[in-house]
Structure formats: structure tokens, C-alpha cells
Amino acid sequence: MTDANPPVPNRITTARPENKMNDVAAQPDPGASRAVLIGVTTYHSPELDALPSVGNNIRQLAALLTDRELWGLPKKHCRVLRNPSRSEALDTIHEAASLAEDAFVLYYAGHGLVSTQNELHLALSDASSERLYQALRYDEVRSPIIDACSARSKVVLLDCCFSGWAMQGHMSGSARTLLLADHTSINGTYVMTASAETKLALAPKDERYTAFTGALLDTLSRGVPGAPDLLDMDTVYREVRQELSAKGRPEPQQRARNSGHRIALVRNRRGPSKPASGHLAGELPEQGAAPGEGTQERNSPSGRAKSGGSSKDWWKQFVLWMVMTLAAALIALVLATSLVFLTAWWALETFAPVTGLPALGIAATIALLVGALGALLLSRS
């Protein structure tokens, strides 16, 4: 299906935010912050493909934001909405935005729709190009961030596209996604989107996450070598862009206002004061259900399981078990040999005309033969 709204000329480029000399990245207080993560995985309209990887996106992102090593956002402050209704999504956004004091994070992943007025809509399950009223107009989402949110830092992350360009295995995309960044007249705000104009935002079927969010999760979880101990959004963006570009995938776009690029949500696992070791938090030993969800699938696309220590422990336990088994077998062999010796000596003394030292020697010989046979059988086993 073709998009009823053809792509507009390239008016927006990847802009590097102004860096001020006194800009210093600071991590928001997790206790005074809120996050709303919205993912739409299923659509009732046949024109919109299902996006199962989006469910993995929101679970993993919630795991990272609530990881105490990275930010430590309380789970009750991280609302995860999977396939929400319009009223549920808008009510949750408004409530979280009004409660946030230090930072507010909004993430959406799913299809994007564009009206004839070139307004971006975030598609919910019941939405379609014929039912835009079932989608979230970006202005509806943006309004509570402007009007109800007094947080010093606002971060908006959009992994979306337009249904008119939908392709098998892709989330359609267009330049208008970037227009929302120009519409963002919020102080201390940062916006990152999955793709530039006329580019596709990928959701490969054979990968656990969508392309953009997968690179974002990888950067947040592993850290950036050589970067400071706090990862500001500009550093995160450049690492994500580099990873996607290296794979030949659409490059993300960013826009910041009033030092929004210096917002640092997570700590750098590979910063100067930390050793180079990182893993995806939800690949994490699977932390159970992510905040706001009841169940969680196995999550390990690009994480690295820390198996070295557990293998060493297993080997130590195996060696200990072998030593204990061998010791028990030797003790049993000695006891059995002793029993054979005493039994043979008693039998010779009682029933045979052999007594004294001859009986003792014969009994010892029999016991040694039995012991040697037992040792032979033990060595073969």
C-alpha cells in the first residue's frame, strides 16, 4: 500500500546540539522521576503488520531504567503499557508527567500514521489510516509534557513509522517523524527518533528488538568506552547512530532544547571509574515481569551471559565430589578387606586344623587377594 501523503523535501538534518562550556551532565533523582513506556504489538487493521519485537523493547527498556547499576528508577515510577487504549495511554502520560519533578521519560514503539494535515499519530491497536481517531496525535501526547510537567528534564524516544509505507518486516517511516522535534518547544527537552526523512525504521523478523531500540538498549546496557561516568543523551545518540550506520541501517535523529542533550539518565558501565563489563539488564537473569506487566519472555538477544564464574564453581564441585567418592570407596575397600581377614582367621581357627601363625598368614593372604581384586574393580570403574 502506498502512502497517501508523499514524503516532504528534506528540511531537517541531524543536528548537533549547541555545547555550552558550563554544560555538565547530571543524573536525575530516580525517586523524583517518572517514565511511561508504550509499545503496540498487535493491530486489528490488516494494513498494519504486527510488531512482536516491540513487546521485547518495552520490557528490556523498563529493566534498564530500573536497574540500580544504571539509574534505579523505582518500578512503581516506570509504567509499561502494552497495547493500551487511548484513554489509558493519555491518562497514564498525564499522571506521570504531573508527578515527575526531576525527569520525565516517554517512549513509544509501534506504527506511525500521518493525517492529511501532516500531523503525526502514534497508532494504537484499533487505529488505522481510516480510523486516526483511535491513534494518539503527537500533540495530545506533547501537551501534558508542556502543560502539566514541571520536571527539569524531559526525554522523548520515538521508534515509530507510517503505515502507508509499511512493508513486510519493516515499520514504515518518513520525514514527518522528525517534525515533532521542531514542534518540541519545551525547555530542558530531548527528542530522539528512529529514522530520518523517507527512511524505513526496521523491525527485522529474525531479531528480538526493533533495529533502533536494539541499538539504544545495547548502548545503555554496555556503556561507551572513553565516555564519562554518566552517559548524556548526545553521547548515547552518537553511539546508537554509529552502530546503526555500521550495519547499513537507517540513522536516528535527535533534537534538543536548552541543554537537553546533556541529560544523563544512566551511568556508564564502561566509564573511566569502572571496568569494561556490561550486559543487557533483561538478559539479565530474566528479572521476572517488567514493571507494569505480568509475564516476561526469555530475553537474550545481544546480552552476554556471565558464565565464567559459574563454570569454575561447577568444576570445583565436580572435583570435590570425585575426591569424596574415591575416599568413600577406599574406606569401604579397607573395611571389606578387614572383614574378610577376620572371617577367614575365625573359620581356620574354628573348623580347620590350622591355628596360630599359620592361620593368621592364610587369612591375611586371602584378605590381600580380595583387597587387590576390589582395588582392580574400583580402578576400572
Rank of each mutant, 00 (worst) to 15 (best):
G309Y: 07
G309M: 06
S311Q: 13
K312C: 03
K312I: 14
D313I: 15
W314D: 03
W315D: 07
W315I: 10
W315K: 12
K316A: 04
K316G: 00
K316W: 12
K316D: 04
K316L: 10
Q317T: 07
Q317S: 04
Q317Y: 01
Q317C: 04
F318L: 07
V319L: 14
V319S: 10
L320F: 02
L320K: 01
L320E: 09
W321G: 15
M322A: 11
M322Q: 14
M322E: 06
V323W: 03
V323K: 09
V323A: 15
V323S: 12
M324C: 08
T325S: 10
L326I: 08
L326M: 11
A327P: 00
A327I: 10
A328S: 02
A328F: 03
A329F: 03
A329S: 12
A329P: 03
A329W: 05
L330P: 01
L330Y: 11
L330T: 01
L330M: 13
I331E: 11
I331D: 10
L333H: 08
V334N: 12
V334M: 14
V334H: 13
V334I: 13
L335E: 15
L335Y: 13
A336N: 04
A336P: 01
A336C: 07
T337R: 04
T337S: 03
T337V: 10
T337E: 09
T337H: 03
T337G: 14
S338D: 02
S338A: 10
L339C: 00
L339E: 03
V340S: 04
V340K: 01
V340T: 06
F341H: 12
F341E: 14
F341Y: 13
L342E: 02
T343H: 03
T343F: 07
T343W: 11
A344T: 08
A344P: 02
W345C: 00
W345H: 06
W346Y: 10
W346P: 00
W346E: 08
A347I: 05
A347F: 05
A347W: 03
A347N: 08
A347H: 06
L348S: 07
E349A: 06
T350M: 05
T350P: 03
F351V: 09
F351S: 02
A352Y: 08
A352M: 09
P353K: 12
V354P: 09
V354D: 07
V354L: 15
V354Q: 14
V354S: 13
T355D: 08
